[in-house]
């Protein structure tokens, strides 16, 4: 394997890791506030569809992005309504949201575009294109650094850079702001937060809204940047890989980025090679597909450092009377 191939794989890893990272950070906000969210997949799917649909109709990818965020936030609101207001089971609500998105996207796509559940192909301004960072062309000739800068760092869509910027931003919000402190507290001990006179319901709805926002961007990235248009079930389990990455990272932002990059590399390798030969042994592509899930189970099992979820996660908060 030569230098350029490695670079291409890493480049593709970054592209594939971006939706995982956005969804993973989305889940981080929600779960740190004590709201389990296995509906990341559905929210991404709904956002992917609506952003592609609006971008196709209006020709503006930015309007598409807004529409995608709106779709995802509506589903987030539903999750909040079920799990915060009506104190329902958060896991069941997540399952329902996944199915709702999976069914409705195809239903509406078929009704609007009649192309078998997909949107028309996007092109031109209806799609996010790669940004060429300054000096990328000038530096391309410099050995090692040049290709790394031009191929790997430059040339992605703006959403990729946004996702990377969201990592320190999330760290700062969680660990350096009052809101972040309260958010983490409400996921560990909501009664204490309530005693301090801060609204548990308000905080949790805020967390769920941020989750919807980030999932919306992740979905829009899938259909308007990574691919050109929506196809049925295009999230293909990415919401669950993001959930896996979140556990892998033990609910921390920087580690979430590394986990998503790792899973991105696995996806990129699986995409490029069908079977990998390491000397005598051949690793089948299915092993690469299953690896993120296997790693997550191993981490969850506590064999490689224990992953402890926020303590109040999954429990509806009932104020004492």
């Amino acid at each position: 394997m030569d230098f350029l191939t490695i670079l291409q794989i890493l480049d593709s890893s970054v592209r594939l890791a971006t939706p995982l990272l956005l969804a993973c950070l989305a889940g981080l906000y929600s779960e740190r506030a004590g709201i389990f969210d296995i509906g990341l997949e559905g929210k991404m799917l709904a956002a992917a569809f609506l952003s592609a649909a609006v971008a196709a109709v209006t020709g503006s990818v930015w309007l598409g992005l807004l529409a995608g965020i709106a779709a995802s936030m509506v589903l987030s609101g539903l999750h909040g309504l079920a799990s915060i207001t009506f104190r329902g089971n958060q896991l069941i609500s997540g399952v329902a949201i996944n199915f709702l998105a999976s069914g409705l996207t195809v239903l509406v796509a078929q009704d609007w575009f009649a192309q078998g559940g997909r949107t028309p192909s996007l092109g031109g301004d209806a799609r996010f294109t790669g940004l060429t960072l300054p000096f990328a062309d000038a530096l391309a000739g410099v050995p090692v650094i040049g290709p790394v800068y031009a191929e790997l760092i430059s040339g992605h869509s703006i959403l990729v850079y946004l996702a990377v910027a969201a990592v320190p931003a999330t760290w700062w919000v969680l660990y350096r702001t009052r809101f972040g402190l309260r958010l983490r507290a409400v996921g560990e001990n909501p009664a204490a937060v309530d005693t301090a006179g801060i609204s548990v319901v308000g905080l949790r709805f805020a967390a769920v809204a941020i989750c919807g926002l980030l999932c919306g961007i992740a979905g829009a990235y899938l259909s308007t940047a990574l691919q050109a248009g929506f196809v049925k079930e295009m999230t293909a389990g990415r919401g669950f890989i993001a959930l896996a990455a979140l556990i892998f990272a033990k609910w921390r932002p920087w580690q979430a980025m590394w986990a998503c990059l790792l899973f991105g590399v696995l996806q990129a390798i699986a995409l490029r090679y069908q079977n990998i030969r390491l000397g005598e042994i051949t690793i089948p592509v299915q092993v690469m597909d299953a690896l993120p899930y296997v790693l997550t189970v191993v981490i969850l099992a506590g064999f490689v450092g224990k992953a402890i979820a926020p303590r109040a996660g999954g429990e509806p908060y009932v104020k004492e009377r």
């Binding site: 009506f86 709702l100 559940g117």
Partner: peptide, 28 residues
Amino acid sequence: TKIPREMITVIQALVILFTGALDNMVRA
């Protein structure tokens, strides 16, 4: 008809939503 098969997935989602997650909304 023009109603695709995914309509069942929507119905299934709504049943899970109302009988599972929004149970308290009906019950209270």
